[in-house]
Design a protein around this nucleic acid. Sequence first.
DNA 1: CAGCGCCCCTGCCCGC
DNA 2: TGCGGGCAGGGGCGCT
Length: 271
Amino acid sequence: MPELPEVVVTLQGVLPHILGKKVSRVTVRNPNLRWPVPKNLPILLCENSLQSARQRAKYMLFKFANGHMMVHLGMSGNLKILQKHSPPEKHDHVDIIFNDEVILRYSDPRRFGSILWIDGDPSIHKLLVHLGPEPFSPAFDAHYLYSLSRGKTTTVKQFLMDNKIVVGVGNIYANESLFLSGIRPKKSIGSIPLNAYKILVANVIEVLSKAIRQGGTTLQDFAGNEGKTGYFKQELFVYGRGGKPCLKCKKTLKEIRLGQRSSVYCPSCQE
DNA sequence: CAGCGCCCCTGCCCGC
DNA sequence: TGCGGGCAGGGGCGCT
């Protein structure tokens, strides 16, 4: 489930409990995530203190003196804090235990997520080096999208979800941003004028920041770090609503597939 | 080299 | 009530 807002909310929620603390032990119950959890992760982490953490795309980067632990939540992962040990459940794959017994626990039913170790500069890691700008960075603006799209026929939804163009816009927020912008998901990017890109950029930023403020979108797996759930789902206009009436004009929302992902739009509100 | 499918995996929901 | 099929928030990778 995690889209960018969930990643940001997760990192914000978890960090105050572990920042500056030293790792005392690490338990890896199931290393078979998207890529194997490094066998020496416990050795790498133990006796080192968490110096800082930040997010790049949907990756979380936890900085230690000897390198970075990079965590991705995939489709169904989450991180939570436990103040004291409690019995792990079926999909609780990794525990990182700090010296005050606080536990950072990684869970992921589908195991599409990953926990990797990076020596040296994370920005040149092969999974990060080709990523486009963050949606909240000044580099992500209408002129940028406009210039990249001239002469191309890619659909605008796939363009928005392409990590080389901009990171962090997943399926939910791509659908929502396009609805708010009045642009059909299938629209060819070369035919979209600069003004429409201005509206689109503003809506992508608005939708993502609103979701962050509200604690992320909760579908089936995500629970906030304190056990709270997100409230954004109540405000989705199109995602998951194919065949239902448009909340603005009451016409029936259409559902199509683009790049194997469901895309919902209003044939009346979106052109 | 860009673009398009495939696939990793479990859970859930729907229809029979 | 049981089971098979399809679908789910991501995204790297191999192939055309």
